[in-house]
Structures are given as C-alpha cells and as structure tokens.
Design a protein around this nucleic acid. Structure first.
Length: 203
DNA sequence: CTATTGATGGTC
DNA sequence: ACCATCAATAGG
C-alpha cells in the first residue's frame, strides 16, 4: 500500500540549526514534479554544513554568485555542479544571512523512479530525480520541488559520523555532521566496502 | 578484495 | 588548481 502522502514541510522546519534539520530530514520524502509526472524518494542520508566558519562549506570562501542562495532565506534549494559531471542538492537552513545548509547524499526511490535505479550518492540521486541547474534557488515551500513529511526512522536506526570527501577541511573534517539510516540501500558507501559484506569467520 | 585513474567543467 | 563524484580498470 502506498504510504500517506504527507504534508509539504513548512518554512519553519528549515529555519533551525543545520544539524537538527539534517537529522530530521531522514525519513522525509523529496518530491519533484517534472513534465511527464512526479518523482518521489525517501531521504536516508544527509550532511550538515554550518556556515562561513565551517571550512568544509562552500560558504567558507565568502559570498559569491555560486553560494548566494545559501545566504538567503531557509527553505530554498541550493544546487551546484561538481566534478564536471554531477549535481548536488542541498536545502538552505537557519536564519537569513547565515549560510548554513544540508546536503542530501542518499535516497530510496518511492515513486516515478525506474526500478533498480541506484539513488545512493549525491550525484546519482539528483539524476534520478531530475534535479539540475534549473532547480537552483527554488523555494521548497511553493515550487515543483518540495519535501513531504514522513515517518521518522525507527529509533536506534539513525547513525552519525564524519562527512564524506572533506578531508581538506582540517579539524572540521572530523565533526560528526553526517546522518544516515542504518541498513538502507540508499546510503552511499566508501568505494572500498561497496560489495556485500560476505565474511564469516574472521580474518 | 584494493588501489588508481579518467571523464568533464564551473569556480575563483 | 581545485574540487561536498562516479565508473571503469588493473593488480593481488
């Protein structure tokens, strides 16, 4: 049976500390209305980026044309192009003027997404949901792109740890600002343990 | 299984 | 020059 649709999250949800929003986004559904229908996916992995003082954040290098939307009001999409190939989707959080945001790193397809399509990893999920440059800056409370309320993951299934791919950020690299739902196939994995854990006795 | 590299382009 | 990435490949 289909789960209840859930309400569109209000702006007040996003007007909080990025760590809190990152944690609370787990279990919510990202929805995108596209020309030929709608695509929906459950969020299972996020990372919080705290602001200009956070050396892992794009905002740490100041306010530029690219990072402009992060400095704006909460509840808007910050979409950027990375590695010449992929788009990453973030939601702006906190007070206007404070450049904090949450990167969505993994989802599970729920509707409108081809069966078998991989949606783990920030680059893969934007491709699956049809999120690209045109979606940068969209208001998640009034546009074709939004996030629906959904059941919180079972208590005990939420894990947290250091963010991925930010080793250059000094001590900020170690902060446990990544959140994920343990056991979900939508959670990205470090390249090395991507295969199934098929290990019985030890060593 | 691990390690390495190529693709591909905006940002500053 | 540097990436908030992914896939494909070569080697153990």
């Amino acid at each position: 049976m289909t789960a209840p649709p859930g309400r569109v999250l209000p702006r007040s949800f996003y007007e909080r500390a990025a760590q809190q929003v990152a944690r609370d986004l787990l279990g919510k559904s990202l929805l995108h209305r596209v020309a030929w229908g709608v695509r929906v996916a459950r969020i299972v992995e996020t990372e919080a980026y705290l602001g200009e003082h956070d050396l892992a954040s794009h905002a740490s290098r100041g306010r530029t044309a690219r990072t402009e939307v992060m400095f704006g009001p909460a509840g808007h999409a910050y979409v950027y192009f990375v590695y010449g190939m992929h788009f990453c989707f973030n939601v702006v959080t906190g007070r206007e003027g404070v450049a904090s945001a949450v990167l969505v790193r993994g989802v599970e397809g729920q509707r409108g997404i081809p069966a078998g399509a991989r949606t783990d990893g920030p680059g893969r999920l934007t491709r699956a949901l049809g999120i690209a440059r045109a979606e940068n800056g969209l208001d998640l409370t009034t546009s074709a792109l939004c996030i629906l309320d959904g059941p919180r993951p079972p208590r005990g299934s939420v894990r947290r740890g250091p963010r991925i791919g930010v080793d250059y950020a000094g001590r900020w690299a170690d902060r446990p600002l990544r959140f994920w739902v343990e056991g979900s196939p939508g959670v990205s994995r470090p390249p090395r343990s991507r295969a199934r854990p098929r290990r019985r006795g030890g060593r």
